[in-house]
Design a protein around this nucleic acid. Structure first.
Lengths: 118, 118
DNA sequence: TTCATGTGTAATAAAATTATTACACATGAA
DNA sequence: TTCATGTGTAATAATTTTATTACACATGAA
């Protein structure tokens, strides 16, 4: 039974959930984004400036963070009347152990046509 | 100061070390490999059969696990005299927190030529 | 109206990852 | 000698990821 591997709002169940998280954490830009959001929420354009990448590229990266549910977004209308999309970091804390990975692997079935036909 | 995020032989320091680990854990085949090695060490050909992939492909995947230092290898001569390469899972346990990621991000500098020149 | 700033995405290029195929070579047993 | 099993890698193909460029559209202020 998989449980007790996380703290916070993140509720990972299937191995795909974990892989999404690992994948999300496997790029410097995305760690940078997390670092910035750890200080507080930020809207898209400003976030892109802080990370020092273009907005389209930011969207690409943050999409992975959203898929992994490490961040959430909310649209707001600023005082000046502009639409602003804010991203915020989710509360999480997960523990990676051999036992956890072993449990996850039980559900993984690799089906490959080729079996090293030397 | 980054510390206390791991248990076991794994000693992660720089953010690149962590990214290597996350990257290593971001593919089903590699989780499967870890799951199998969690039961005990295994030699290359048998490991490939157990995972159900070709040997060349196994090498590709396990290389990432080795880079992340999640597995180690050792050559041995079997009783029958054949050279066998055994892979074993390292002892590890790491805790991923917002605080850790925030610290890691401090060392990440993104240098991109383009800044969304809309 | 024009400018600065915000939103979002489609199309493409570049680079990296993943997967396959085909080799070479060694040993023990039949 | 031939077969089964082990080792390892080079070359290529297929796919995905990452990055760039060029759009479109909205609002408030000058």
């Amino acid at each position: 039974m998989i449980m007790g591997n996380f703290v916070g709002d993140l509720n990972l169940k299937k191995y795909e959930d974990y892989i999404n998280v690992f994948d999300a954490l496997s790029h410097p830009v995305r760690i940078k984004i997390i670092g910035i959001l750890a200080e507080g929420r930020q809207y898209v354009s400003e976030l892109a400036r802080l990370v020092n990448i273009s907005r389209p590229l930011l969207y690409m990266h943050i999409k992975k963070l959203e898929t992994a549910r490490l961040v959430t977004s909310a649209m707001e209308i600023s005082e000046s009347g502009k639409a602003m999309k804010y991203y915020a970091l989710e509360d999480f804390e997960l523990q990676i152990t051999k036992e956890l990975l072993n449990e996850l692997s039980q559900n993984i079935i690799i089906e490959t046509p080729s079996k090293d036909s030397d």
